[in-house]
């Protein structure tokens, strides 16, 4: 698709987990992941912890180099066809831990101004812009500009982190659990801010979260990951109303209710995901799937188109009626 602003092509990332030679063990954190995001769109990414969401985020922003596969920005390969430094100006990231992602010895104004100075903007101008950005994310620059990270709250820090990403004037922002650590009320405010900014600046978001309610609220499309693989990807409405992968179904079934009295912190599925060092054969979900049958443990289902821009990697969809 030519209108994709950012796309992942067969990304693979394995981490060495001990052992050498024949005994070498690797964690298959991300295994053959491909997808694309259109300009102005928000792609939600969901999955249990350990499914490779964060690794995917770091591969997309080139903080990690993939073992194979590539990331393309407007169709051009990041790192070769687009120089990394240019790429980084266009694709920014906001991290989960608002405290750890700010230098404890740097004032908020300097933290926001640092990025532009790297790209050749002089210090005074960068600081002026940083002040304006702090203002835009709802922090009075005169009051918050000279503060250090430990002197402000988590919500305020995350606003600073958003301002820091905006300072590059990027097209794409990867938000890795960016609101997950915040209190519900603060989370809502930051989400509203993100929505406003997206409209205002025509931003593209890749919004990673384990909270399905939040993802539904902000995303145009949703991608579901399991053990380093994409199991389903499609428009938000379709995914939430008619999931075509049993794993998505299970996640949604366990989703906490919007009624606060009925919210639970229970894991969406029984049992823990299998060890990613030695993932199950065939479809990786078959060990926990209620509908597993003949072919599931034998071979991987591959990506099957199940609707308009809707793909699910499940053998259940391999019957002809799926091709609507």
């Amino acid at each position: 698709m030519s209108d994709a602003i950012l796309s992942a092509h067969n990304l693979v990332k394995h981490f060495h987990a001990g052992g050498w030679g024949a005994a070498r063990k690797v964690v298959r954190a991300v295994d053959d992941v491909s997808f694309e995001v259109a300009e102005g769109e928000t792609l939600g990414v969901v999955g249990e912890s350990g499914c490779g969401k964060s690794t995917t985020a770091r591969l997309l922003t080139h903080l990690l180099a993939p073992n194979s596969g590539e990331v393309r920005y407007r169709g051009r390969v990041a790192g070769t066809e687009v120089p990394l430094k240019t790429f980084r100006r266009h694709v920014q990231m906001v991290f989960q831990d608002s405290y750890a992602s700010l230098n404890p010895r740097m004032t908020m104004l300097d933290a926001v101004a640092f990025g532009p100075t790297v790209h050749g903007i002089d210090r005074a101008e960068a600081r002026r812009r940083a002040g304006a950005l702090l203002e835009r994310v709802g922090l009075d620059p005169a009051r918050f500009g000279p503060r250090y990270p430990h002197e402000i709250s988590g919500g305020q820090r995350q606003r600073v982190n958003i301002a820091r990403a905006l300072a590059f004037d990027p097209d794409v922002i990867v938000l890795d659990e960016a609101v997950s650590a915040l209190d519900k009320s603060v989370e809502a405010q930051v989400l509203n801010l993100l929505t406003e900014l997206r409209r205002e600046r025509n931003l593209t978001y890749i919004f990673i979260s384990h909270d399905l309610n939040v993802v539904r609220h902000i995303s145009d499309r949703v991608m579901v990951m399991y053990l380093g693989e994409v199991v389903e990807i499609g428009p938000t409405r379709t995914i939430y109303d008619r999931p075509r992968h049993p794993y998505t179904g299970a996640l949604l079934a366990a989703m906490p209710s919007l009624d606060p009295d009925r919210r639970t912190l229970e894991a969406p599925l029984q049992g823990d995901p299998p060890n990613p060092i030695d993932p199950p054969s065939g479809c990786r979900f078959h060990t926990r799937c209620a509908q597993a049958h003949g072919p599931c443990p034998l071979h991987a289902p591959g990506s099957i188109a199940v609707g308009h821009r809707h793909i699910a990697a499940c053998h259940l969809n391999a019957v002809p009626e799926a091709a609507t």
Binding site: R147, S153, D183
Partner: peptide, 18 residues
């Protein structure tokens, strides 16, 4: 958004260097 930020507990009056 700015005015309704509830979580301003950690704010000291003056920024303090380390």
């Amino acid at each position: 958004v700015a005015q309704t930020d509830f979580d301003t507990l950690a704010t000291a009056d003056k920024p303090q260097g380390y």
